[in-house]
């Protein structure tokens, strides 16, 4: 099992008793004085689970750690603690929940890693920083067949059924191709050393473009569903 550790922000010492903290449990609370640790600046979801930043996470391990840490941070354990400790355990628990929901879900994980590298700012934020939001290259063949399909449905809704089915197959094929490319980019990212910033950004930008294409496919899919309700022969 791949459990290389990541560098932790100021994780070495307990915020209360100053003793050395080690391991993924100690990241959340001190095993010596039992104090829940405050959320640290720059602490990521990967830090919370003491796992390296990568796409190919061992989801079973994430889940196992989630249960173990949750048990330690359970509010019942802090009923007689100080207000500060209770607040910290709550903040930790809520952070851990978000982290778990993100790391176990492959599309949430993609969004999260892209965001950590500044590639998921909204268009408005990017323009404010003087950057141009990346424009997804739309597969032109798909735009063409999508246009033709809508024309055909408009001309003769009763005869367009077959074409709708053909179009859906084409859409599914393009989606699957894109997903394969995303998987291969993920694997490339996971293999890179974390200081290879240029290569990392290049890969993540490609992923960004692929994800936008996937969004585009999904919005067309929804339109096709709507269209099917009006086409009697499907």
């Amino acid at each position: 099992m791949d459990v290389e550790t990541v560098s932790q922000p100021n994780q070495n010492a307990c915020s209360e008793c100053g003793r050395k903290l080690e391991g993924y449990l100690a990241h959340h609370f001190c095993s010596t004085c039992q104090a829940p640790q405050p959320l640290r600046e720059g602490e990521s979801y990967f830090h919370a689970f003491d796992l390296p930043m990568k796409f190919g996470l061992d989801v079973a391990l994430v889940q196992k750690r989630f249960y173990e840490i949750s048990r330690e941070l359970h509010p019942d354990r802090f009923v007689s603690s100080s207000v500060d400790d209770r607040a910290r355990s709550m903040a930790r628990m809520s952070f851990l929940n978000q982290a778990f929901q993100t790391l176990r879900n492959s599309s949430a994980l993609r969004e999260y890693i892209l965001k950590l590298y500044g590639l998921r700012a909204s268009g408005v934020e990017m323009r404010a920083e003087g950057r141009q939001p990346q424009k997804a290259a739309m597969p032109i063949e798909l735009a063409e067949s999508w246009f033709e399909l809508q024309e055909a449905v408009l001309d003769d809704p009763d005869q367009a059924g077959v074409r709708v089915i053909e179009f859906e197959a084409e859409l599914a094929r393009l989606k699957a191709q894109g997903e394969n490319r995303l998987k291969s980019l993920e694997a490339q990212f996971d293999r890179l050393p974390k200081d290879a910033e240029t290569e990392i950004l290049a890969i993540l930008s490609q992923m960004d473009a692929e994800l936008q294409r996937q969004n585009y496919f999904r919005s067309i899919e929804k339109d096709v569903e709507r269209m099917k309700r009006n086409v009697s022969s499907v």
Partner: peptide, 11 residues
């Protein structure tokens, strides 16, 4: 010229 909008599926 045939173009599509990635944001919404408009063509």
């Amino acid at each position: 010229g045939l173009v599509g909008a990635p944001e919404c599926g408009d063509v």
